[in-house]
């Protein structure tokens, strides 16, 4: 704490607010940011708006995702989704596919669909220390990772993944290919709605430890400004839009 007190004192000195009794409180907690008091209303409005405009948002997402480098597939049934994932896995000659424990993936019978063509599907779930080591090894050697998504953003062509119980951070990171399955109900117009909902989650006490917003493949232009994909994360990414 000594470090903190000295640090804050030096900031106040620099700001000329070190006189005893000088206020350190801004005029209001959020000052120029949106008021947390209206947060619930804003979150509800965002959700309603997104569901009313879902056709338009799905189209916008398909376009922005494609321009961000996703391969976009629009499918109307779970079977079709599983079929698409299977053929994508065959295309990369996958032997092992790791996946998150998203319910959506369970309900499409993805494990069986892959097993039919001789591909092993491993679900990454929580375990003890040695279990975690083993999972890392598995994910490292897998040719593809499959996840659901918590949100998708039409503005930017992104999916947002929350790390939480039963959803690994590594499925969409370690394998060279990633497939994200996006349901209509999770598509949001823009980043603003996403952060309104996340702020709401914080006030509800379930922000969780981690959120990753993914927009296209891993990329770099560090060598002569030449765009290269697949640096440390997946170089091949698919977004499956489930109508």
């Amino acid at each position: 704490m000594a470090d903190r007190q000295a640090f804050m004192a030096s900031i106040r000195r620099a700001l000329g607010r070190d006189a005893p009794g000088a206020s350190v409180q801004p005029p209001s907690e959020t000052a120029l940011s949106l008021d947390p008091a209206d947060l619930d209303a804003r979150a509800r409005a965002a959700a309603n708006d997104a569901s009313e405009r879902s056709d338009e948002l799905m189209d916008a997402l398909a376009r922005s995702a494609a321009s961000a480098g996703w391969k976009v597939a629009r499918v109307s049934t779970l079977e079709e989704a599983a079929g698409y994932i299977r053929s994508a896995a065959l295309d990369v000659e996958a032997k092992t596919v790791v996946r998150s424990a998203h319910e959506l993936l369970d309900s499409m019978g993805i494990d069986a669909a892959l097993a039919n063509v001789g591909i092993r599907a491993e679900t990454m779930t929580a375990g003890d220390e040695s279990g975690r080591e083993a999972l890392r090894e598995t994910a490292f050697h897998a040719e593809m990772g499959v996840t659901g998504a918590d949100y998708a953003i039409a503005e930017t062509g992104s999916v947002a993944l929350l790390a939480r119980a039963e959803v690994s951070r590594l499925v969409a990171l370690l394998p060279p290919a990633h497939v994200a399955v996006v349901e209509r109900a999770i598509v949001l117009p823009s980043l603003d709605e996403l952060f309104t909902l996340r702020r709401g989650a914080f006030y509800d006490g379930n922000l969780g430890s981690y959120m990753n917003i993914i927009t296209g493949p891993s990329r770099s232009a560090d060598i002569e400004q030449t765009l290269v994909t697949g640096v440390h994360g997946p170089g091949e990414v698919h977004m499956v839009l489930l109508e």
């Binding site: 975690r132 999972l135 890392r136 790390a163 119980a165 430890s209 981690y210 990753n212 917003i213």
Partner: peptide, 16 residues
């Protein structure tokens, strides 16, 4: 490509 938001440490039931 990636915007990563970190809130402290992994929770007890997080996979990793």
């Amino acid at each position: 490509s990636y915007v990563t938001l970190v809130n402290g440490v992994r929770r007890d039931d997080d996979v990793d």
